[in-house]
């Protein structure tokens, strides 16, 4: 139920957007998010974009991994 799938915003016609999930395109509601742009990645749950995915934070997590595996003993 709480399954959410990330996809890329392809076009916007507020309050809807076409989101591309690796080739499968679907119309989703985007009015739970502010300032969404074409090209943003969003998490979609039951037809709603519930959060923007942040690329910076993905990099941050990668840093945590390096710290955990390489420096912490």
């Amino acid at each position: 139920m709480c399954l959410a799938v990330p996809g890329k915003v392809e076009s916007i016609d507020f309050p809807f957007a076409i989101v591309d999930f690796n080739g499968t395109k679907k119309k989703v509601r985007i009015d739970l998010l502010d300032d969404l742009k074409v090209g943003d990645y969003v998490l979609v749950h039951v037809g709603f974009a519930i959060q923007k995915m942040d690329e910076e934070d993905v990099k941050e997590l990668e840093e945590i991994w390096k710290q955990v595996l390489e420096t912490e003993q």
């Binding site: 502010d34 959060q51 995915m53």
Partner: peptide, 18 residues
């Protein structure tokens, strides 16, 4: 918060509001 690529400290305020 290990899922920071999707989870923010405040969450989704608009969603909380509705």
């Amino acid at each position: 918060n290990e899922y920071s690529r999707a989870v923010k400290y405040e969450g989704n305020l608009k969603a909380q509001q509705v």
